[in-house]
Design a protein around this nucleic acid. Sequence first.
DNA 1: GTATTGCTTTACGTTGACGTCAACGTCAAG
DNA 2: CTTGACGTTGACGTCAACGTAAAGCAATAC
Lengths: 141, 141
Amino acid sequence: MTSQTTGSPAAPDDPSRTWTIAEVAEEFGVTHRTVRHYEELGLISPDRRGTTRVYHRRDRTRLALVLRGRRLGFPLDEIRTIIDLYDAPRGRRSQLEYVLSQIDERRTDLEQRRRDLDAALAELETFERRCRDDLDRLGRL
Amino acid sequence: MTSQTTGSPAAPDDPSRTWTIAEVAEEFGVTHRTVRHYEELGLISPDRRGTTRVYHRRDRTRLALVLRGRRLGFPLDEIRTIIDLYDAPRGRRSQLEYVLSQIDERRTDLEQRRRDLDAALAELETFERRCRDDLDRLGRL
DNA sequence: GTATTGCTTTACGTTGACGTCAACGTCAAG
DNA sequence: CTTGACGTTGACGTCAACGTAAAGCAATAC
């Protein structure tokens, strides 16, 4: 079900399409409690139609970023400072330089993570080869 | 300070060298509480000299694995099942096949993480370029 | 001697990230 | 008009991963 109360037949690529909390929760595989929790922390700020939350494409974009950050193991408030960075005003030189310094910090962190990840994968594959060799030896007996 | 009470002058590559809890904590940049917590969860199992914990190279190896897993955002009990896998007996075919299936599960997870990581890095670099362009434009005014 | 380190255990506190429950509003369907 | 289905706001519960404080033993430092 779409949330469009207008008679229009729910164009999925309509940039003005909106979603309910149940729809976004379902779509992203989280509970509505999680979605509300992210709103409490300022990670997303859905509109309201009266008292009811109304989610736009913008909210889904941010939610996707939040969940990717979560999969990568970042704390939620750190995730907020990162994605807020993307929306931050960059009019003045000082702001731009601050944003660039933050970017650099982030990248250093992410690159460290990738090193860890690659090392873990490499060890895993070495180990797999050992196991397969053992299995072969068992087969030849 | 080394923990060797013997007269030997602390050879750092001696395979029988041991460490105190303070030394390993210092070396890995964690508190002694963290080290003990990992022991409570069965992630490491140091020897005892009387009541005092004595760490061998083996413990440091496992601790390094634990901390890398932590940097990657894995929960500690999951980390334990992973590194226990490396030490698991692989004598029988059924055991080997189980271990191999676990390896495959792990690798799938790690590869998903790498995709997330690469996407995040790519976006970060796109964003950085935009910012640098903005900065250039400001400079040319 | 005592005093200071450095280690130990026990145990309760904290923080992040939600889960869960109660109590209530609202709107279309029967 | 009542019944669901879906929404809302508190508020408390829970679990992981430690922090932290209390109280004690054991060896070196003075």
